[in-house]
């Protein structure tokens, strides 16, 4: 499903270089990416999502070579094929729960969400134990509830890949476990591939694949000349 070959990336300020010679994540698998802070795990998710672009190498998701798409194509690909979940939820506080969930659909169409989208959002809310929360302000939800809303938002477009950046990082262990269970379950139900960055090693046994990130991190160097 996700194939990375000869990936090479560095930021313009040359703080670090990321090199991934080869990485393959099969379809419908749950893959955990672990590694020390600053090792480039979030950067890898951003490269997969097409938010950042590689210097060289290829990132393929399904048949699409994300790394070779134009900016507009990458954006549309991200909207339609990738669901994103963030550590700090990144919900928009002035929108209600349902409005946050259907936001990707609105951004994709530029129109009011149709009944099918609203029905799907209601169904996701129900599946995530948030039935009756549709019109609540997200600022009135607990941390766990907010992350569940973020999971609903990631699933609304029926993505093939879900990229989760430490989604349980701000949650207590009990809630973190419940949120992860929900995320794994929903990913399986929707037949999506999950790539999740985490620091919590106690959760790793729930993933089919674990990618230790230290192997990809080249020593931090200054200056772009040293970059790949």
């Amino acid at each position: 499903m996700i194939l990375i070959e000869g990936l090479c990336f560095s930021y313009p300020d040359g703080i670090f270089n990321l090199e991934i010679p080869h990485l393959n994540i099969p379809p419908e698998q749950a893959c955990a990416v672990i590694g020390p802070s600053g090792s480039g795990k979030t950067t890898l998710l951003n490269l997969m999502a097409g938010i950042l672009t590689v210097r060289s190498g290829v990132i393929k998701i399904g048949d699409a070579a994300v790394s070779r798409l134009s900016e507009t194509a990458r954006r549309l690909f991200r909207l339609n094929q990738i669901g994103m979940i963030f550590q700090d939820f990144q919900l928009i506080e002035y929108l209600s729960v349902i409005e946050n969930i259907v936001l990707p659909a609105r951004l994709a169409s530029g129109k009011l969400p149709d009944t099918a989208v609203l029905d799907k959002a209601a169904s996701l809310l129900s599946d995530c134990g948030l039935a009756g929360y549709a019109n609540r302000r997200v600022t009135r939800l607990s941390q766990g509830e907010r992350q569940r809303v973020a999971i609903c938002r990631a699933l609304i477009m029926g993505p093939r890949v879900i990229l989760a950046d430490e989604p349980t990082g701000n949650l207590d262990p009990h809630t973190a476990g419940k949120v992860l269970d929900l995320l794994l379950h929903q990913t399986a139900v929707h037949k999506a591939t999950l790539v999740m960055v985490t620091h919590d090693h106690s959760l790793l046994d729930r993933f089919q694949q674990v990618v230790p990130f230290e192997q990809f991190l080249k020593a931090a160097v200054q200056g772009s000349d040293a970059a790949c």
Binding site: L79, Q90, L91, I92, P104, L107
Partner: peptide, 11 residues
Amino acid sequence: SEIQTITRLGG
């Protein structure tokens, strides 16, 4: 952060 969310989602 709000603008970044919209952009990262695909806006």
